[in-house]
Design a protein around this nucleic acid. Structure first.
Length: 991
RNA sequence: GCCGAAGUGGUGAAAUUGGCAUACACGCAGCGUUCAGGUCGCUGUGGGGGCAACCCCGUGGAGGUUCAAGUCCUCUCUUCGGCACCA
């Protein structure tokens, strides 16, 4: 018998599929289109990576399944060949990118074809093809017309190694370049941006209904970073407190906050060093210092700013007015406030914000509480302290020495006693002092409510006032004062009173009150010390005028309403998402299709204002270079071809692209006036190339349109997309944005490009991340050649669920090779006119059903497990019929395509197995004739019984009682308290 | 710190959504076939106790709901991913 030789078989069938166009659909005639897509391969010199290979496989298996299920499946392929990665590698080996890519693409194609994927190789696209990037440029011009592409001078991220600016999304968490891992710098440069922020809300809310991996959606949500709050205007206070400066509105300080409810707790305002008012408002005597600080901060990189843990800043000498209470608050400048978020200015509430608190502590700025977690407690303690004050003042007047103590553990309970060191006997005898105290209490509105006899001579009197404040009057110092370990310490804190020991229950409330007492003494008290931590959670407002007592949530609404009415603020939503910087000072990309014309600027000043006329979004128009009009290249002149350069295509690092030096490229004529003009010399980010490629696949050779509208309607959006989640906020976000923009142009009627997206987990090698330096990189080609691609692909899928990280091991893959072997060897058991046992037929039908349901939810690992079970079941049979084996081969073919084809042809079929139909399972055969019922006693399994599928509860009960084991546990049926019966599953007796 | 995902045998992992925990595979052990080897076939394999039938324990930890919990609720620990001086 022939031995299983995957190498030979796979080579034969991969060639057959391509030659016979087995997987090439007729896009126009297709009746049941299914668009299966894996992420755009970037043809790296290193060759195919196992992670990408895995994503391809996930898509491919589904494509094969859907094809057998009767769909017209399109699984296109192409090359994302522009970009810094390719160019960097070309620079490294000193070869032109174009030449190098010819080689790497060839290699990639070869590797992917060898893998037996069901790609359509007749419709490849390549982003570096002028026929492709013509449309990349076209998209730019369309966005420009709509005001979604604009130029501005801004702080941008510059990679010193790649010598170009990058988008925010292309900077990794530690401030490293996504491509080369160099630390990026901040530079102020004029760059082209895409107004992705105009779509922030749509990008966010769209996520809700999208069938995408949760992990991806969560990453996008975090990146968009929506926060709802308000803008509050602080007017600037003139040094003479009687008058406000009559500043125009723009000279108000606007702050963004999500916590308007803490506005009463605002004790100062902070501007970022980049804020336009920072220097303007500084008083003459502070100006020098402020200027010095701003300069120093400007020199620090973003990383340095973040690294310096201690908050630092400088006082401007100026004051602002808190709009809600008219309080005068100092204005500071500090670099812990970011220029790029919100308004670049914040209201500081040190009592309820950790950063503000840290800053306030350092510079001894006032801390004012305006939120409490326990409003009732707060009010009561306030009243208690008020009462204590009264008693204390009155006692002083009458020269009565008393100590006030909080009760330990009882509500609103303060006490009055004699001095600690006074002799108890003396107290008992000194009725005079005691009587005086009682009188004083009565005078202050306290009434005796009860009394407690402590001994023959000592009595405790309990007084209460109308607020329900209870105060003990008695010589019970031993019980209270000495029992409390914190007594001495608390006396020190409370030197404002004679003494007050706090009940533990009201620590927070009373300590907050103490805080206020201290503030009166202009002492900035250490809130963290008193409270353990800064109270940053929502709570109830206190010391906040008419808003006191409201919940934070309600107060935010009310205060915002009031601010809006008074035109002192408004509701505002902020996003962390920033516009997409698409300029690259590099060679290997599509040139930005823009021309700068001096004549047009003079003759048609309006040309500069382009695109404001057609803009519907109120975006600031492009300002281009000074004195030049910005003219987009019209469609008929596209593409703007990237000139072939033999020399000088390396990035210079001077902030200009290499094309700037190519005079015959830059020098051009203006498409508007025909006069002399200059081209933009930067190229576009390659993430734009890959943001729309799946549209192009629909009609890759179309010369008239970006894609054929009719075919688009049929095939788009993509049915299944799989790829790594490292692109969650890069490719996957850009793609959504471009799709929305094209949707708004009327190109199609959907704005989510991928109906279903699944982020595949990472493949680890023996539990560790793969890396070249560790030398544990799994090369798919190596394993494919050695053990067969059928086994390799199935193993990757069998490892675990699609979304989990999975560990690849050389031992583990043997199991799948083994399985392939067993499938191959099954043919020895085929007997053409054999009559299969009922059980094995049932097993086949059950497996068909189970595999279908697993495939529908992308549970490839269990689908394979079930096919293995069936294989094992076949091995338990002497013979199997050819008919059954054929059905089996079809369902196995999605995982072991080449092997299935080979066996299929050996059975005598002349056509591909993938032209067959997925076998239908017979529901009658799937259903079990008999069922296994678990018999439990008190929830513990004690026996199993087999009954017919039609058996009713009573029959089952009877059979259960017939069991010897059950009899052993329940000798007397009367002891059964309850019977739980789950049809088809179990019966549980509670005794 | 905030948001998300996840913790089950020696290992990768299953578990019809609350109903027999550990399917399938690796590894290991044993048997068979073979001159031999394993890319062959079969059997066994969570832990503990018992000659045995059988019993007890067991899904990161602690509680809870339930006849019944890997699954639901509360608290907690750990790991991974995203965001992060974002007001």
């Amino acid at each position: 018998m022939k031995k299983y030789n995957p190498k030979k078989i796979e080579k034969k069938w991969t060639k057959y599929w391509i030659d016979k166009k087995t997987f090439v659909p007729d896009l126009a005639k297709a009746k049941n289109p299914y668009y299966a897509l894996f992420m755009f391969p970037y043809p790296s010199a290193e060759g195919l990576h196992i992670g990408n290979f895995y994503a391809f496989t996930c898509v491919d298996v589904m494509a094969k399944y859907m094809k057998l299920k009767g769909c017209d499946v399109y699984e296109p392929v192409g090359w994302d060949a522009f970009g810094i990665h390719s160019e960097n590698y070309a620079l490294k080996i000193g070869e032109m990118p174009e030449k190098m890519l010819k080689r790497t693409i060839k290699n990639f194609r070869h590797q992917m074809q060898a893998a037996g994927l069901s790609c359509d190789w007749t419709r490849e696209v390549n982003t570096t093809d002028p026929e492709y990037y013509k449309w990349t440029q076209w998209i730019f011009t369309k966005l420009f017309e709509r005001g979604l592409a604009y130029q501005k001078e801004a702080q941008v991220s510059w990679c010193p190694d790649c010598k170009t600016v990058l988008a925010d999304e292309q900077i990794e968490a530690e401030g490293l370049c996504e491509r080369c891992k160099a630390t990026v710098e901040k530079r102020k440069m004029k760059q082209w941006f895409f107004k992705i922020t105009a779509y922030a809300e749509r990008l966010l809310s769209g996520l809700e209904t999208m069938d995408w991996s949760e992990i991806t959606k969560s990453a996008q949500r975090n990146w968009i970073g929506k926060s709802e709050g308000a803008i509050v205007k602080f007017k600037i206070f003139k040094t003479k407190p009687s008058k406000f400066l009559r500043f125009s509105l723009k000279n108000d300080i606007e702050v963004f906050t999500t916590r308007v409810d803490t506005l009463f707790g605002c004790t100062y305002v902070v501007l970022s060093p980049e804020h336009e008012l920072a220097l303007k408002i500084a008083t003459p005597e502070r100006k020098k210092e402020v200027e010095k600080y701003i300069k120093k901060a400007g020199q620090k990189s973003e990383m340095e700013r973040k690294e310096s843990k201690e908050k630092a800043g400088v006082f401007t000498g100026a004051y602002a007015v808190n709009p809600v209470n008219g309080e005068k608050v100092p204005i500071w400048v500090a670099d812990y406030v970011l220029a790029g978020y919100g308004t670049g200015a914040v209201m500081a509430v040190p009592a309820h914000d950790e950063r503000d608190f840290e800053f306030a502590k350092k510079y001894k700025l006032p801390i004012k509480q305006s939120i409490t977690p326990d409003y009732e407690g707060y009010k009561q303690t306030e009243k208690t302290v008020e009462a204590l004050h009264k008693i204390n003042d009155a006692a002083k007047k009458e020269k009565l020495k008393i100590w006030l103590l909080g009760g330990l553990g009882c509500a609103f309970h303060a006490g009055i006693i004699y001095r600690l060191h006074d002799d108890l006997d003396f107290i008992a005898k000194d009725n005079n002092q005691f009587k005086k105290a009682i009188k004083l209490f009565e005078k202050l509105g306290f009434k005796k409510v009860r009394e407690k006899k402590l001994s023959e001579t000592l009595t405790n009197y309990i007084f209460a006032n109308k607020d329900g404040i209870e105060i003990d009057l008695g010589p019970n110092v031993g019980e209270w004062g000495l029992a409390d370990k914190d007594f001495e310490e608390n006396i020190k804190i409370l030197n404002g009173y004679e003494a007050c020991v706090l009940s533990k229950k009201f620590h927070i409330g009373l300590k907050n009150l103490l805080l206020r007492e201290r503030r009166k003494e202009k002492d900035s008290l250490d809130l963290a010390y008193l409270q353990g931590k800064v109270l940053t959670d929502d709570g109830f407002l206190v010391d906040s005028g008419i808003y006191a007592g409201l919940t934070s949530e309600k107060a935010r609404e009310e205060i915002t309403k009031w601010l809006e009415k008074k035109k002192l603020g408004k509701k505002e939503t902020n996003y962390k998402l920033r516009d997409w910087c698409i300029s690259r000072q590099r060679y290997w990309g599509p040139p930005i299709p823009v021309v700068y014309c001096e004549h047009c600027a003079k003759n048609f000043p309006k040309a500069r204002l382009f695109p404001s006329k057609s803009s519907t979004l109120g975006i600031p128009q492009s300002q281009a270079l000074e004195n030049y009009a910005t003219i987009p290249v019209p469609e008929k002149d596209l593409p703007v071809k990237l000139p072939e350069l033999k020399k000088g295509w390396e990035p210079a690092g001077d902030g200009k692209g290499p094309l700037a030096k190519v005079e015959n490229f830059v020098k051009t004529s203006c498409p508007k006036c025909g006069g002399e003009a200059r081209r933009e010399a930067d190229v576009m980010d390659n993430f734009l190339d890959s943001a729309w490629y799946f549209f192009r696949y629909v009609s890759p050779k179309n010369k008239k349109e970006i894609f054929d509208r009719k075919l688009g309607k049929k095939w788009l959006p993509v049915d299944l997309y799989v790829g790594g989640n490292e692109h969650a906020v890069l490719h996957l976000m850009y793609t959504r944005f471009i799709t929305m923009a094209l949707h708004d142009l009327g190109l199609m009627d959907f704005d989510n490009p991928f109906k279903k997206f699944r982020a595949n987990g990472m493949i680890l090698k023996d539990g560790k991340k793969m890396s070249k330096s560790k030398g544990n990189v799994v090369n798919p080609e190596e394993y494919g050649e050695k053990l067969g691609y059928d086994a390799l692909k199935s193993y990757l899928l069998f490892l675990g669920p699609l979304s989990d990280d999975r560990s690849f091991s050389d031992e583990g893959i043997k199991g799948l090779r083994h399985w392939a072997e067993r499938v191959f060897n099954l043919k020895a058991r085929i007997a053409s006119n054999h009559k299969d046992s009922k059980d094995i037929v049932k097993k086949l039908h059950q497996t068909i059903k189970a595999v279908e349901s697993d495939m529908d939810s992308q549970k490839y690992n269990t689908a394979i497990a079930k096919l293995m079970e069936l294989t094992n079941a076949f091995y338990a049979e002497e013979k199997i019929s050819a008919k059954m084996f054929e059905k089996y081969l079809i369902i196995v073919s999605i995982f072991l395509p080449a092997l299935a084809e080979e066996l299929w042809s050996e059975l005598g079929y002349g056509k591909s197995i993938f032209l067959e139909k997925w076998p239908k399972y017979d529901p009658n055969l799937v259903a079990e004739k008999e069922m296994n019922i678990v018999v439990q006693i008190n929830g513990k399994v004690r026996d199993q019984i087999t009954v017919s599928a039609e058996a009713k509860e009573d029959d089952i009960k009877k059979s259960a009682f017939a069991s010897e084991k059950i009899k052993k546990y329940i000798p007397n049926v009367d002891n059964i308290r309850k019977i739980i019966f789950v049809p088809g599953r179990l019966i549980n007796f509670v005794v």
